[in-house]
């Protein structure tokens, strides 16, 4: 009886997970599309392996090892990709897909980053920034690269 219940419970969980997978959660701000070598994601005090397909959330910190690189597509179609030994923090992401209004702030603490801005920067030129430890980059609809050496 107990095991039957457990099995049913598990079945229900599987169904619930399948439903979750079908509709991207509201918390998702982007997704890892490319990952090579070591890629880690720091989230709420935990460190998770960064894999292709992993959804990302606000405040996630994405790190790459000496052999690592990672490519991320954000919900507004911005593309962020980091080379080896990089630390990238997704500090703030708000986006209304109907109006394209939103706000996107990311920070490169270390390493190299390539950026293609998306719909947020296209709609509102001041609404996307990439910070480094000592400067702020204001994005006006553009592709660029930025590096921070230690």
């Amino acid at each position: 009886m107990t095991s039957l219940w457990l099995r049913r419970g598990r079945g229900l969980l599987v169904v619930l997970f399948a439903l979750c997978a079908a509709v991207p959660a509201l918390a998702d701000v982007g997704q890892i599309k490319v990952a090579t070598g070591q890629v880690l994601v720091d989230r709420k005090g935990q460190t998770l392996p960064g894999r292709v397909g992993m959804p990302l959330e606000t405040d996630d910190v994405v790190r790459t090892g000496t052999d690592g690189s990672v490519g991320i597509t954000m919900r507004d179609n911005s593309l962020l990709s980091a080379g080896p030994n990089s630390i990238l923090s997704l500090e703030r992401f708000e986006f209304d897909p109907t109006t394209n209004d939103g706000r996107f702030d990311a920070q490169l603490r270390r390493g190299t980053l390539a950026v293609v801005s998306g719909r947020i920067a296209k709609k509102t030129p001041q609404a996307m920034t990439v910070r480094t430890p000592s400067a702020t980059l204001g994005v006006r609809g553009t592709e660029f690269v930025v590096s921070v050496d230690e």
Partner: peptide, 10 residues
């Protein structure tokens, strides 16, 4: 300088 980052672009 940025070859690896650009190669990882989705």
């Amino acid at each position: 300088r940025y070859g690896a980052a650009l190669a990882a672009q989705p």
